[in-house]
Design a binder for these strands. Sequence first.
DNA 1: ACATCGCTATATCGAATCGATATAATGATC
DNA 2: GATCATTATATCGATTCGATATAGCGATGT
Lengths: 209, 209
Amino acid sequence: MLDMAILGLLEERDLHGYEIRRQLRDHLGLLANVSFGSIYPALTRLEKSGAVVATEGGGPTGSDPGTTGAAPPTGSLSGEFAVLRARRHAGTRSRRGKKVYRITDAGRLLFAELLADGSAADDARSFSLRLAFARHLAPQARLALLERRRALLVQRLVESESARPDLDPYARSVVQHTVDGVARDVSWLDSLIDSERADLADARTEPVG
Amino acid sequence: MLDMAILGLLEERDLHGYEIRRQLRDHLGLLANVSFGSIYPALTRLEKSGAVVATEGGGPTGSDPGTTGAAPPTGSLSGEFAVLRARRHAGTRSRRGKKVYRITDAGRLLFAELLADGSAADDARSFSLRLAFARHLAPQARLALLERRRALLVQRLVESESARPDLDPYARSVVQHTVDGVARDVSWLDSLIDSERADLADARTEPVG
DNA sequence: ACATCGCTATATCGAATCGATATAATGATC
DNA sequence: GATCATTATATCGATTCGATATAGCGATGT
């Protein structure tokens, strides 16, 4: 799951571990403060599998070869500054072996696979992640993702309706709040599905121009 | 975290692993389908530490000694039947080594500690779990739990307000939905806090009766 | 009668993730 | 120029997950 998240972020621009964590926290709604104990092993994993390459922020050669050349512009300011700083010090020695990671073609392929694999991970985090990267999906795949999720949540609501027993007030409140949240998720999905359908209809009506 | 959940459920009645999972899913709002790969190791852990004892659902002795005597009544029907079934077969041989766990005094103590320890685990799951068991807390501890959580969420909302950058529509929707959810959580907490305060006021106004 | 399917139930394995901690460079504050 | 917060990488042990194996039992069907 983290692998997909990292690859998705790297599709936009080169990043180092610390920045990846920040973007996961800020730019995606996953308040889930992913631990460094997950991120660094994941990066190592991805590097070993050839999905990313680490362009040492101050490699053996003096002035940083083209590897880091194209990506830098835009992004969170602090992130940019960090990169620039690392570059500036590249000749002398970057701060404590800072590693900027870049996605490879193999990585892009892997990302597409992970993103498209609907069979995987029905948990909320995985879904949110996929949806956040939904622009990389074909329109029908997007719709399928949304509808699959909707079906799952509706089923849970139905199941929760039958058989809810004697519960003390606190537990009951928690359950009720959770159920309400799921219902809210469903209507959110409904609006997303509607707009996807509208887009598809548009595409059909005006095929070329 | 699971330890607290298990102990909390066992405070009400003796249970076996499978039932614990079901109650976690149904009776608490934690849709989080906790894996058996978590539950069974947790039970072993708790047993080794002396917080629970396993009353084999068909032990060495013939007709099930007093250990399982007091607890059974009420609860999810299937759970009850399961226990009864296990009992009935106790003489011959219960189905595949079914283990019914019972909490000990040490376990009750541990539960109280885990529940009261406000320093631990600021994630949503831990909070929901604590709240679901809030009847085991003193009124002020309850209030503290709620207010601490509220403060945390409000802080997150504030932080999310500043600096939300260029995001594609899908990611933006995810972020917005998450933020809305947090806001909803806050007003839920507000209502809970209000009713806790009201209870405290009542207790002050009519000290004995 | 019996075959098969689905649910109940325990258990284990490897891998992913967490939470805490160590380390160190840099920038800001005083 | 000492101290502190932030940036940054890394590793450790423990927890949790997801998949899988095993097996008893009830219902359903033929």
